[in-house]
C-alpha cells in the first residue's frame, strides 16, 4: 500500500492533447479523452485512483496545465 496519495487536476480547456504526460506516469493514471475541448484537442484526463503525486506529468507538460496535489496517508487520516 502506498504511503502517499495524489491527485491531479488538468485544465482540460488548456490541454493541447500532446500526450507527453501519458507515458511518464508510472501509475497509468492519465489517458486521453475521446471528447474534444473547445480548441479541438483530445484532452488528458485522470482515469484511476493510483496517482501518487510524483509530479512527473506536470513537469513535462509544456502548457503547464496540470496541478498536482499530494497527501501523506497518515495526515489524511488525521484530517
Amino acid at each position: 500500500m502506498a504511503k502517499v496519495k495524489g491527485e491531479i487536476v488538468i485544465n482540460s480547456e488548456r490541454c493541447k492533447g500532446c500526450e507527453l504526460c501519458v507515458p511518464v506516469c508510472q501509475q497509468q493514471t492519465i489517458a486521453m479523452s475521446d471528447k474534444l475541448n473547445s480548441k479541438g484537442y483530445h484532452y488528458a484526463m485522470s482515469i484511476n485512483d493510483e496517482c501518487n503525486g510524483c509530479i512527473n506529468c506536470a513537469l513535462v507538460c509544456p502548457d503547464g496545465v496540470i496541478s498536482v496535489y499530494r497527501v501523506k496517508l497518515k495526515d489524511a487520516a488525521v484530517a
Binding site: G6, E7, V9, G53, A58, L59, S67, Y69, A76
Partner: peptide, 14 residues
C-alpha cells in the same frame, strides 16, 4: 478527490 485537492496539499502548479 475533493479532500486531496486542497490548496495546502498542492505540490505542483504552473
Amino acid at each position: 478527490r475533493e479532500s486531496i485537492c486542497q490548496q495546502e496539499n498542492l505540490v505542483y502548479s504552473r
